[in-house]
Design a protein around this nucleic acid. Sequence first.
DNA 1: GTCTATAAGCGGATAGAC
DNA 2: GTCTATCCGCTTATAGAC
Lengths: 225, 225
Amino acid sequence: MDEAMRVGDEETATPRNGPRNGPRTRAGEANEERILDAALDAFASRGYHGARIDAIAAAAGLSKPNLLYYFKTKDALYLAVLRRTLELWLEPLRELDEARDPRAALEAYVARKLAYSRDLPSASKLFALEILQGAPLLGRVLDGPLKALVDEKTAILRGWIAAGRLAPVDPHTLIFAIWATTQHYADFSSQVAAVTGRTLADEGFFEETREGLVRLLLDGAMPRG
Amino acid sequence: MDEAMRVGDEETATPRNGPRNGPRTRAGEANEERILDAALDAFASRGYHGARIDAIAAAAGLSKPNLLYYFKTKDALYLAVLRRTLELWLEPLRELDEARDPRAALEAYVARKLAYSRDLPSASKLFALEILQGAPLLGRVLDGPLKALVDEKTAILRGWIAAGRLAPVDPHTLIFAIWATTQHYADFSSQVAAVTGRTLADEGFFEETREGLVRLLLDGAMPRG
DNA sequence: GTCTATAAGCGGATAGAC
DNA sequence: GTCTATCCGCTTATAGAC
C-alpha cells in the first residue's frame, strides 16, 4: 500500500474520487458506483491485503482490466472507498446538539450510531480495520477533523456537567463508550450472533439493544435509589 | 488461508502447538516462543494477508527457511498464534464471581479487561481482526466454549437482578458493553491517541479511564438523585 | 538446526485488439 | 469502454549443502 498518499491530503489526491478527470458517461458513473460498493464489502470483510481486485471486479460485473480502467491501482480504489465513506462516518457526532435536553441528545446519538451499525456494517468494519492497523491512511483525519469535532462536543458535555445536567463523567470516556458499544454490533457481529443467536437486522433485537444501551450508559448497571 | 482447519478442531490439529512431534531442544523451544511473539505482533498489526513471514523471521532473529522449519506453513503459524492466545483471552470472564458483591465483581472485571488492553494490545487486536472478518478460524470457539461461558455468567447476572442487587439491564448488553469499552483502548489505540494525546501506557490515563468506565457503566451518565 | 539458492504460483498491472 | 492474453514482481515454500 502506498502510504505516501493519505486520505487527508486532498491537495495531492486525485481531484475527483473517480479515476479520470475527463468526461464520463452515465454508464461509467454507474460502473464506478458498483465497483465502490463491491470494493467496500471486499475491503471490509477481508482487509486491504486480503481483498482481491478480480473478485471485486466479478462482484461488480466487470473484468479485472476493466475495473483497472476506472481505478488505476488497488491503492487508488481503496483510497476512493475510504473517502466516499468518510463523511458518512463523521456525520452522526456532528448532530449532537447543545440545545437539546442532554438525555434526549445522548439517546438520539446512541440510536443514530446503532442504526449506522445495522445499515452500514461494512463501512464500520472498514474504518475499524483501518484504525486497528494504526490508521496509516486515516491518520490525518483522526488528529485533524475528528479531533476538532470531538473537542467541540466534549465542550458541550462539560457545559452540561457544569450545569448539573450530566453526571461528572469524563467526556472522552463517554464518547468512546458510545462509539465502542454501538460499533461493537457491526464490527463483532459474528461474535454477537454466536453468543446471542441474533443480529441487528432482527428488529426486536435492534430495539432491545438500543433500549439496553441507553439505559446502561445513562442510568448505569447498579440499582438507583 | 486454509479454512478447513479451525482453532476449535483439536482432533485434526497438530498435537502440539509446535511444528514437530519429536524431541525438541531448549534452544528450539526458545526459538518457537520468539517466533510466536513476533508473529503475534505481525498478524495483529498487518492482518493475516498483510503479514510477511520473512519479516516475522527477521523479527525473531531467524532466516525465513529456518522459521519454516519450526512452522511448516504460514497458516500453521497463524493457527498456533491464535491457539496460544486463546486461553488468555477467555480467562478474565471466568473470574466473574457470583459470590462477590456485584459492584466489586464488575469493577474487578472492568479493571482486568482494561489491564489486558494495556498489557496485551496485540492479542486484543488479533482477535478483533479475526472476529471482524467473520471469525473463519475462531467460529467454533465462539459458539462453543465462549457461548457456554457467557451463558454461565449471564445466569449470575440474572440472579443478581432477581435479588435486586443489579438494575434490570440485559445481561448480554452489559457483557458486550464491558468488552467493547475496554477493548476499544487496545483495538483503536491510534484513534484514542489522536483524540486525547494519551495511551493506556500512561499510568494516569489508565487510572482515569478505569475509574471513568466503572462510574459510567455502573452509575450511568445522568445525575443521580 | 541453520543457511543460500531456487522453484512455484499468485495477483496486480499492462498490451493491444475490438 | 471492454475484453483476452500476458507480463512480471513478490511471497510462500522447497532443495540441498553445511
